[in-house]
Design a binder for these strands. Structure first.
Length: 551
RNA sequence: GACUCGUUGGUGAAGUGGUUGAACACGCUGCCCUCUCAAGGCAGUAUUCACGGGUUCGAAACCCGUACGGGUUACCA
């Protein structure tokens, strides 16, 4: 009895060999320096911001180099899987314009290196495992959970490294005969990798972010195939997939750094060269005095859904992430405002390797405000409208009832050198402009009058203004001259400079008069340019809103 | 516990032995401009790079130790 018999007993129906698959998935016909990258999430139903950051990196590397970016669904853990997960992932990728070149979704397989869903690649993994068994680099292990647990406790007690290795790896000494016998008896088993490594040996590993790392070799006989569903573990699945999908660069979180030695040995055992690895720092969150991993359970901003629902422009989120990825991105972008992030000279080694970055929402807000302020009215209209269709009934209604009017409102102080920056997100638009709509205005009750509170005085100001001064045909200069005349007529100071020098000499200033008009029209003391607002509202609406205050 | 990665302002950070008396951006503070606000302009915001020691003519940068933080330690990825 040989390893070959053992392999055939375990995988009687696997006929294809590694060589067959090498032919089936040939080296990609792309430029030598083109990168093949992938996004390989497990289908949990969410896209974490840390994962998305990796998507951005993967996407840039592939696109810039003329390579391929593909999506692979890592669903080997059937207990965690969520039904609609792939849909969510594709939705996010498309929303942010990072459509993969190859993927499997909605019954379609795009690309020649599929299937792109791990649970559909069982035969490929089995062929790999069968091969390892044949050459003596993998073996069935019959140890049960209790035994393993006991072993770990003992190791911990003796301050040893924990794990299934060396003398602790009892099943590695089973002969082919013994293993075959146990399997025939029906004992449950997993398949473990047989490590040849010595932990005290070290080797150099090149990580593209951290540089050269001097790591201990692996000596763990890790599980490569699980007992229940015969699916491989992540460790084994990813080396098979990354090899046969001809991946050149793997971007993953730094939580994988401790298993690099395992993966390297696995690649060696298969006779393959490993792809290049880029281990990214985690995204952290300030929680009181402590920085901790941003968590999808506690922190809504950990999930991409949050940014979509809030209506941050796509470019804003990408820019915020790029800033974390390569902090010189921002400077580059201000120097090259018209270029896409794909033109940026992204370099993995420029990524900070320190601890992990706090994702700064305030920074995002600032970026977002700037980006929105630079859109012209048509762009903003298009994007906000598109967004509103799925995320905001309120905004959608506003826009649809009169698109032209909406554009006029958002265009106030917009297409100019130093545009206003009122809108932080698409979702914030209604909060800033609702008072321009009569239907919404009738519900408003509290008026934020400032210095002038006296109802008699307010009435007098509004009445005098509308009866004697306001004319919607006036240009801005004349309009303001009239406001000044009104101010003087009522005994206030029309010259702000004079007023500031000696405020006690007057009842108040032109600012106070304007504020009364502004608040009566909008309920707020702070709005964009009054002249523009008046023009857009029109005489009729103005009169109606003023009437409430007449005595 | 074991193994491992890291530690520059409130935040992201630049920096690889000498025009760094620590860039840039966000935030914060003040002033100016101004009919309000948002902007914009100007100025301020780490006497110092976790701490201790060493190497050097010279260190935030190189070395050692300590402390602190993160990660891993699963038939989860």
């Amino acid at each position: 009895m040989t390893y070959k018999d053992l392999a055939n007993l375990i995988f009687p129906n696997i006929t294809k060999t590694i060589e067959d698959y090498e032919k089936e998935y040939p080296i990609r016909n792309i430029k030598e320096d083109a990168m093949v990258t992938r996004f390989a999430p497990s289908p949990t139903g969410f896209v974490h911001i840390g994962n998305f950051q990796q998507v951005v990196m993967n996407y840039i590397m592939a696109k810039k180099s003329g390579g391929i970016f593909y999506l692979r669904n890592e669903d080997t853990d059937k207990t965690r899987e969520v039904e609609t997960a792939v849909e969510v992932i594709m939705q996010v990728l498309r929303y942010y314009g990072m459509e993969p070149d190859e993927y499997e979704y909605d019954g379609k397989v795009i690309g020649n290196y599929g299937p792109y869903i791990q649970s559909e690649r069982k035969e490929i993994y089995h062929a790999g495992i069968k091969h390892l068994i044949e050459i003596g680099r993998a073996y069935p292990c019959f140890c049960d959970k209790e035994h393993l647990e006991q072993m770990r406790e003992n190791q911990e007690k003796n301050k040893m490294r924990t794990g299934y290795y060396g003398k602790y790896a009892s099943c590695r000494n089973l002969s082919a005969e013994e293993s075959i016998k146990k399997i025939k008896e029906g004992l449950p088993y997993v398949i473990r990798f047989r490590s040849n490594g010595n932990f005290d040996d070290r080797f150099w590993f090149q990580d593209l972010v951290r540089g050269k790392l001097y790591l201990n070799k692996n000596d763990q006989d890790i599980v490569i195939m699980k007992s229940d569903n015969l699916l491989p573990t992540y460790h084994f699945a990813h080396i098979m997939d990354d090899h046969f999908m001809r991946t050149t660069h793997v971007v993953r979180g730094e939580e994988w750094l401790p298993s690099v030695a395992v993966h390297i040995e696995l690649f060696e055992a298969m006779g393959w060269t490993a792809p290049k690895y880029i281990h990214t720092p985690l995204i952290l969150k300030q929680d009181g005095p402590i920085k901790r991993k941003i968590s999808k359970r506690k922190d809504p901003e950990a999930l991409m859904r949050y940014y979509m629902e809030k209506g941050y422009p796509v470019e804003a989120v990408i820019e915020a992430l790029m800033t974390i990825i390569n902090s010189n991105y921002e400077e580059w972008h201000t120097a090259n405002p018209d270029k896409s992030f794909l033109d940026f000279d992204f370099q993995a080694k420029k990524m900070s390797s320190s601890g992990g970055a706090l994702f700064d929402l305030e920074k995002l807000n600032n970026i977002s405000k700037n980006i929105i302020s630079k859109m012209n009215k048509d762009e903003l209209y298009e994007k906000a409208y598109e967004w509103s269709k799925t995320y905001s009934e309120e905004l959608k209604n506003m826009i649809e009832q009169d698109p032209k009017y909406f554009k006029q409102i958002i265009n106030i102080e917009r297409e100019q050198k130093k545009p206003r920056k009122d809108f932080e997100t698409y979702a914030s638009i209604p909060k800033e402009i609702w008072y321009m709509y009569d239907a919404l205005f009738t519900e408003a009750h509290s008026y934020a009058f400032q210095k002038i509170q006296d109802p008699e005085e307010i009435s007098k100001i509004l009445k005098t203004y509308i009866e004697n001064y306001y004319d919607e045909l006036d240009d801005k200069e004349i309009w303001f001259e009239k406001i000044k005349k009104l101010t003087t007529q009522l005994g206030y100071c029309a010259d702000m400079k004079a007023y500031k020098e000696n405020p006690d000499a007057y009842k108040g200033s032109v600012a106070d008069i304007s504020t009364v008009i502004r608040v009566a029209l909008t309920t707020r003391a702070m709005t964009p340019d009054l002249y523009e607002l008046l023009k857009l509202l029109g005489t009729e609406k103005i009169q109606k809103r003023f009437q409430k205050f007449y005595k």
